[in-house]
Write a protein that binds this DNA or RNA. Structure first.
Lengths: 232, 232
DNA sequence: CGCGAGCTTGACGTTGTTCAACTAGAGTGG
DNA sequence: CCACTCTAGTTGAACAACGTCAAGCTCGCG
């Protein structure tokens, strides 16, 4: 990991997966945004943003993983996604009601930079390229949300569990074998089902030789069959 | 309904609920967008945009209702929302893959204006106000999608049916009594359940005196109890 | 009058949740 | 080093929720 071209371990300029949103910025604009950042570190379990509170900063992830979820009044959560290095957490409160609509919680030690929304707003108003890029980001997120909606409402348990495993493989750990930093409840919240049902379905897949699972170690053995289950 | 300040029955300038997106435009910009519009009329059942096809135009609704839904490979659909006068249909393909991700189908006779995406893009690049407004729109849509996701995955049937009825009351027909222009299957697709289950749940509410339902005529009698069911 | 599409109802089976008991491993204090 | 406790994970059985299938109904239309 390279050092920040100014000082510190900034995620805006030297994170391995630097957010594309900043690509179109002029050097002056970039410097200003950069100088205003705050580098913060969170421990596992700590809340980074809390649903319902005022939206004052965005986060730019450098290191570690966090889960982003929607808290329902009755206690059950919907885990919307897992995010890591390079993720720009800009929420849905921007230009609407200025509150956080989701809770972001650290799963591991998380290092990130915070950027005040007012700095961000100012940049957006003066920089078309960045606004366009943001619209593009928003649209991709909406596409994801829409397919998630379709999958969670119409697939059976096996399909939903398979989707979760494929999501972890493809988007988070980027390997066939990985060590979870999510609890079983988190996994169930990703698949919109009860913890017990998730465990049972996982066991069936293990018994069928599709996976190897020991506590938090997961290894995907038969990717084809997993994809088949996902496709229903 | 007033006439277009130029010619025709344009939904961009003289629709009762003119989209806020155009508020910040200069007169010149507005005139150019306006002169490039195409006024089109659709009959009930006609497809306005088809999921998977190239995204070349946006639609600006003047009159009538349409349903917007996600088509699943297996045949079941998810009805994302019902739209009417003043709705700007700009899809999620913009600045991403340039395809339609949802199908839009006329429920009644629909009159709208089509605007080529390239004209729209050009405006967005030269007009910050409009870009900001679009980001705001996108965020509101994402908030809606997120709560929909939570409601459809965790509420029981009574709650989901109540949600659909409240949605129709509050956002579409804006009255306690209305005549549906949706089939039972459409309503079930809104609530993410089978047609039979929707009908059964509707009957229970009728038997409980919460609603009056005769074919396509719906009257909400006990709003409080309906809201109670929605809250679970 | 008969036909057909959409609506309605009932019976039945499947799927998934809930509840409760049990287990494994990690941390703590004697 | 061994109990003890605590938390997360696992398993089973009972139950409720929901979908599916099949049959009958209603209304508009030829």
């Amino acid at each position: 990991m390279k050092e920040c071209k100014y000082i510190g371990l900034c995620s805006i300029c030297c994170c391995e997966n630097k957010p594309s949103l900043f690509n179109g910025l002029s050097e002056d604009d970039f410097d200003e945004l950069h100088s205003e950042r705050k580098e913060i570190s969170f421990k596992p379990g700590e809340i980074i943003f809390k649903q319902g509170t005022a939206l004052t900063h965005f986060a730019c992830f450098r290191e570690g993983f966090a889960k982003i979820y929607y808290e329902r009044p009755e206690g059950s959560n919907i885990l919307v996604n897992i995010v890591g290095s390079g993720y720009l957490c800009e929420s849905m409160g921007m230009f609407t009601d200025n509150i956080h609509h989701l809770t972001t919680q650290a799963l591991t030690t998380v290092k990130l930079c915070l950027i005040a929304t007012k700095n961000f707003d100012a940049l957006l108003r003066s920089n078309q390229e960045m606004a366009i890029e943001l619209i593009s980001m928003k649209n991709k997120q909406s596409i994801n949300l829409t397919t998630k909606l379709a999958n969670l409402t119409y697939k059976n348990m096996a399909g939903r569990v398979a989707d979760v495993l494929l999501y972890l493989r493809n988007d988070i750990y980027k390997a066939d074998e990985f060590v979870l930093n999510l609890s079983r409840q988190d996994l169930a919240d990703l698949a919109a089902m009860s913890k017990e049902s998730f465990i049972r379905t996982l066991k069936e897949m293990r018994d069928a030789g599709i996976l190897e699972v020991h506590r938090d170690d997961v290894k995907i053995i038969k990717l084809r069959e997993l994809k088949q289950l996902s496709a229903n």
